[in-house]
Nucleic acid binder design. Structure first.
Lengths: 198, 198
DNA sequence: TCATAGGAACCGACCGGTCGGTCTTGTTTA
DNA sequence: TAAACAAGACCGACCGGTCGGTTCCTATGA
């Protein structure tokens, strides 16, 4: 049983996360979150200003975790293709592990369309990733791992692949070995970018 | 002003479509749809059993339109690469034209996760498209346009690209010439698949 | 060591408002 | 005139959020 302030907060957050991922933001009531977390509504509103604010906090945490895992993946890689392959593995891991709450991803995306506050917080990281990939590919070209291709277009393609794969995996999680498919896909992409194809 | 039964139905449908795309399914009330369409609630429930059923009908219409436009695109193409390029153009057109209601796409996807009825209706076309792409690519390989690659993986990659691009375009519609980017992206993919790369 | 004060954590009945959906009544049309 | 269509007042359920009150923890001081 949670005792400290932070414990209770996290307990509520984790339960809300699970419920939002499973049933969606709108369909999940505050009462349901409270019931699931074993706290009262009073406790809930003691810790969070609103349901919406809790959602924003989940989004921030989620983005921060993404940042951290990507950053560590790139640091360990010697060259650009390896870095990209590692990132693909990370995405594959996200698909596989249920605690990553892939359901939240579509939920965030859908709400980002309507909610200016969510949009604001999400669009910035998105642009950053795009620019980041762009630079990474530019670097790959410089280092001779890739042929001359538009870094921007390649970056958008990479992002699309990751996004689209996440969406497909969520839609029909059972049929595919998504990890394998993702690895193969990135392989295909890298082939397309490679300088010295046979 | 609508006169016939079908006119009124379509009038309500088109208004609901617009509102759902802009504000989301949950946030759009039946009363709002009625106000926007200029009909009463009585009229609404005379034509539709429920809000949910209207949503399902929108989904069906949307999928049927997708089917039709894809089918005609492929028929006109002489070889597989051309067909794929045409499809990319179609997706690009969908991004550009506001009446296609891209917002509905994420809405459908998000609800497909939770709602068994929506899932059921959407997953089948999805599998069909995947199989269809798979066969198309297999055909491309046979005809010597593509090198030996896994048709399944390539099909998933193509689907991912389309999905991911739609999502990105919806997220930041202004910054990119998405049509151009999509064309370039598919070009890159076809390069990756091409047999006789220089 | 213990009495006590005060605030943080927590409780849950309750409120205003909204929503999807119903129902009665009136109107148009064939 | 019967059937289809449309109107909009109305209903009950539910939802996010509030509020007055209780419990628990800890710090203080004598």
């Amino acid at each position: 049983m949670p005792r400290s302030r932070e414990d209770t907060r996290q307990h509520i957050l984790r339960n809300a996360e699970r419920l939002f991922a499973a049933g969606g933001y709108d369909a999940t009531g505050v009462a349901e979150i409270c019931r699931s977390a074993g706290v009262s509504k009073g406790a809930f509103y003691h810790h969070f200003a609103s349901k919406h604010e809790l959602f924003l906090e989940l989004l921030d945490t989620w983005l921060a975790a993404l940042d951290a895992s990507f950053a560590s993946a790139v640091q360990q890689a010697a060259d650009v293709p390896t870095a990209l392959r590692r990132m693909a593995d990370l995405v594959a891991e996200g698909i596989r592990r249920p605690e990553v709450r892939l359901g939240l991803f579509v939920e965030f995306w859908a709400h980002a369309q309507r909610d200016p506050l969510i949009w604001e917080r999400a669009v910035d990281p998105y642009r950053r990733y795009l620019t980041y990939f762009e630079r990474l590919i530019g670097q790959g070209i410089e280092q001779g791992d890739f042929r001359q291709a538009s870094p921007r277009v390649s970056a958008v393609l990479l992002t699309s692949t990751a996004l689209g794969m996440l969406m497909q995996a969520q839609f029909v999680p059972e049929d595919e070995e998504w990890g394998e498919t993702l690895r193969a896909t990135v392989g295909l992409l890298l082939d397309g970018l490679r300088e010295d194809r046979q």
